[in-house]
Write a protein that binds this DNA or RNA. Structure first.
Length: 491
RNA sequence: CGGGGUGUAGCGCAGCCCGGUUAGCGCAUCUGGUUUGGGACCAGAGGGUCGCAGGUUCGAAUCCUGCCACCCCGACCA
């Protein structure tokens, strides 16, 4: 059918790239490493935003906005934090251009040099905590539960549409608390919100766990993550929530008076989820015919395609289609009636399969005569004929079923590609074929983790929250271990 | 930053080795007509600083020099 895509089995990376372009989600821009998110791709992001925003507000958070620029001096206040981001910063040094004296275009005006350089935010902890310093004096000012929807810049050496771009869109939550316990509770709450969102809206099963010290966010005491498995057996970090302890409060001198009148530093968390999620969505569900979108995040949930030979037929089909569209919309479903005359039905079928529209309804003269609709579902590509009077409930149920089915399929895939491994040989062998998640014992040291990474490119994705206590031996060093970690090669 | 590759119409490419009519093909676009239940067909039309700057030559997309950009493979990362 869709011979326009590279085969997923032949070249997974190329398939992914083709799909992003052909489905009209995004394209490379004139700026190195930065993408243009096209309307269809952005519509998915808007759906993600709308749902997450609702969930953040339901858990007591509010939105605010902080500057894109961060003074260099702010950045260096938390030692680990700078170290982590220093190598991928874009820096503003001047504020004016002028005409070149030799008449050759425009140049940076050397007299317009900034006193202090500005960093384009790679993340906003520093600029936000600088503000929190002024906002917090007493325990009565706490907690602060703020989220920001923003763009950030990380000057990555190699980029890939959605998965890693030099500029990306995300949300970052930054909260301030009076006690350690409350901050930890917040960190956990938000990783649960992310997992809930991933599983119930993206139809993406995830594993929640702790990051190893090596993989932790720069400046965090503890990082929790949700990890998902892609169809090529590689892992993708889909969201992170950090317990920052008092690190940033100390760096920015944010103290408060508690109920007993004692002065203490504020406890912090931060948590983020980015446009990378769209990459996860694509890689987790799609096939050789194109995207497969979960109904709850699909910009178009149902497309209606007319099949006709002449204007007379089109008139009667159009009347039925418009009524059907209105009825479905009244049930809260987003519907597109594609009555463009410049493409044949076959072309449209292929087009909407490529774009992952969950349900397709075809209406032709036969259907008008028999009072029926042809219903096709994107996830299985099955077609059936449904009586017009049953179509509303049928579509509603079908959308739910597709949502559940693609989740089940992804979960099944993850189960089949998660392995408990106890020997080094097996570990190496499984990583190469078939790949996937590997649960193995690890001695808990950074040295071992790095050796494993060097030799196999596999990293510890997380130590799953639900990983049970059990005695074992580290797969690499043979030293005793009490718990299994989750390993994989990752994006 | 190291290794490899590519820049020719909106997109994908051929031409370059071996210099020589008006730079070609497919897709897309526009016009007209026939079509329409799984990516239609015919006829016609428009669209080019051949990445940039020099050089060699009677003549350069083609040869030489320099530069720039992008892509792929490694080291960094959500």
């Amino acid at each position: 059918m869709a011979k326009f895509l590279t085969n997923r089995e032949e070249n997974y990376a190329q398939w992914y790239n083709d799909l992003v372009i052909k489905a009209d989600l995004a394209e490379n821009s004139a700026v190195r490493g930065c993408m243009v998110i096209k309307p269809y791709g952005y519509a998915i992001w808007e759906k993600i935003q709308a749902q997450l925003d609702k969930m953040f507000k339901a858990t007591g958070h509010v939105n605010a906005y902080f500057p894109l620029f961060i003074p260099k001096s702010f950045f260096s206040k938390e030692a680990k934090h700078v170290e982590g981001f220093a190598k991928e910063c874009a820096i503003v040094t001047h504020y004016r251009l002028k005409n070149d004296e030799n008449g050759k275009g425009i140049i940076v005006d050397p007299t317009a040099k900034l006193e202090e350089e500005l960093i384009i935010r790679p993340t906003s902890e520093t600029i936000i905590w600088n503000s929190y310093k002024n906002w917090i004096q007493s325990y009565r000012d706490l907690p602060i539960l703020i989220n920001q929807w923003a763009n950030v810049v990380r000057w990555e050496m190699r980029t890939r549409l959605f998965l890693r771009t030099a500029e990306f869109l995300w949300q970052e939550g930054h909260t301030a608390h009076a006690t350690r316990e409350e901050a930890i509770e917040e960190t956990q709450k938000m990783i649960n919100v992310y997992a809930d969102f991933a599983e119930n809206f993206m139809a993406l099963p995830v594993i929640k766990g702790y990051k190893s010290e090596n993989e932790r966010f720069a400046g965090a005491i503890d990082t929790y993550a949700i990890e998902a498995l892609m169809q090529d057996g590689k892992a993708l970090q889909a969201g992170t929530s950090h317990f920052l302890g008092q690190n940033f409060a100390k760096a920015f001198d944010v103290q408060f008076t508690d109920k007993t009148g004692k002065l203490d530093y504020v406890w912090a968390t931060s948590w983020g989820l980015s446009t990378r999620m769209i990459g996860a969505l694509i890689m987790a569900h799609s096939d050789n015919n194109g995207l497969v979108l979960p109904p709850r995040l699909a910009p178009i949930q149902v497309v209606i395609i007319p099949i006709y030979k002449n204007a007379g037929q089109m008139d009667s089909i159009s009347a039925v289609a418009k009524k059907l569209k209105a009825d479905l919309e009244a049930k809260g479903i987003s519907v597109k009636f594609d009555d463009r005359d410049n493409n044949k039905p076959g072309w449209k079928f292929a087009e909407y399969e490529l774009k992952g529209v969950p349900v397709r309804l075809a209406l032709g003269p036969r259907d008008i005569e028999n009072n029926t609709v042809e219903v096709a579902r994107r996830d299985t590509l099955e077609k059936e004929i449904v009586q017009m009077d049953k179509i509303l409930t049928h579509v509603l149920l079908l959308l739910e079923e597709i949502q559940n089915n693609i989740y089940k399929k992804a979960l099944e895939f993850r189960k089949e590609n998660t392995f408990k491994v106890d020997t080094w040989d097996e570990f190496v062998r499984i990583l190469d074929n078939p790949g996937g998640f590997i649960l193995a014992h690890w001695d808990g040291t950074i040295e071992t983790e790095e050796k494993i990474k060097e030799e196999t490119k596999a990293t510890i994705r997380c130590i799953p929250f639900d990983s049970p206590d059990e005695d074992g031996k580290c797969i690499y060093s043979g030293k005793p271990s009490k718990r299994r970690a989750l390993f994989a090669r990752s994006y």
